[in-house]
Amino acid sequence: MDWTRSEIAAYAALAVSLGSFAIAGLALWRGIDASRPKAWLELLPTASPHVWQATIYLRNLSLIPIRLVSVSVDVVEVPAGKKQDLLLDAPTLDEAGPATGGNMKMPIPTTVAAILPGETGSYSFLYKRALLRNARSVTLSVGVKSLHSQPRHARINVRQDIPGGGITIGIASSA
């Protein structure tokens, strides 16, 4: 098959237009991804075993104020037993240890301030790992709501390694 100059020019123009369409789509995808809120989790050990002080940070990269709505853990066992991680309402510990009970999904109080565009907000609570679980990391699901005239809801998963998960063994020599 012999190609004429006009056919070659038409196919070249088609290739250039498809390439520019792909680049425009990639730029749009990156722009949308850049405006999504970013979340991360920080875990600090407490005096009680299997309990950590958890703080969720949320950076608002959008142009609309957002609010934290809820935090939840994955459901591992139904009904909740000794393999189910829990979230504790009280962010403080007393001498007897953490409060008993807990939630698999915890609503964030409406008194927590909204996160304005370009700012970072945080919320602290206690994370209690189940007694029979030996997970080395925590994955929480954070509910976020935009404070727009038509609110939109989103879930962001955050993951963090549990600090101090190993066992320390000391060997003393007897002389």
Score class of each variant (00 low, 15 high):
residue 89 D to F: 10
residue 99 A to M: 11
residue 9 A to L: 13
residue 27 A to N: 07
residue 160 Q to G: 04
residue 71 V to M: 13
residue 103 N to E: 02
residue 102 G to Y: 04
residue 147 L to Q: 13
residue 57 Y to S: 08
residue 8 I to P: 00
residue 9 A to K: 10
residue 56 I to V: 15
residue 11 Y to D: 02
residue 91 P to R: 07
residue 68 L to Y: 05
residue 63 L to Y: 06
residue 119 E to K: 15
residue 11 Y to G: 00
residue 38 K to Q: 13
residue 122 S to N: 14
residue 8 I to H: 08
residue 124 S to D: 08
residue 129 R to A: 09
residue 26 L to K: 11
residue 39 A to C: 15
residue 117 P to D: 07
residue 125 F to N: 00
residue 61 L to I: 00
residue 60 N to S: 05
residue 55 T to V: 09
residue 81 G to K: 04
residue 99 A to S: 14
residue 123 Y to G: 00
residue 124 S to K: 13
residue 165 G to V: 09
residue 172 A to F: 04
residue 145 K to N: 09
residue 153 H to D: 12
residue 153 H to K: 12
residue 142 V to F: 04
residue 135 A to P: 00
residue 116 L to Y: 13
residue 11 Y to R: 14
residue 131 L to M: 06
residue 51 V to P: 01
residue 65 P to C: 13
residue 93 L to R: 01
residue 51 V to L: 05
residue 78 V to M: 09
residue 168 T to R: 14
residue 67 R to D: 09
residue 168 T to L: 13
residue 24 A to T: 12
residue 162 I to P: 02
residue 156 I to D: 01
residue 15 A to C: 10
residue 101 G to Y: 02
residue 169 I to W: 08
residue 60 N to I: 03
residue 131 L to G: 03
residue 110 T to M: 10
residue 98 P to K: 05
residue 10 A to R: 15
residue 134 N to H: 12
residue 128 K to T: 00
residue 169 I to P: 00
residue 23 I to D: 03
residue 165 G to F: 14
residue 27 A to H: 04
residue 43 L to V: 00
residue 66 I to Y: 03
residue 102 G to C: 04
residue 33 D to I: 00
residue 138 V to L: 08
residue 102 G to F: 05
residue 63 L to T: 13
residue 72 S to H: 07
residue 63 L to M: 07
residue 157 N to P: 00
residue 65 P to N: 14
residue 108 I to F: 11
residue 12 A to L: 11
residue 66 I to T: 04
residue 6 S to Q: 14
residue 130 A to K: 01
residue 157 N to Q: 10
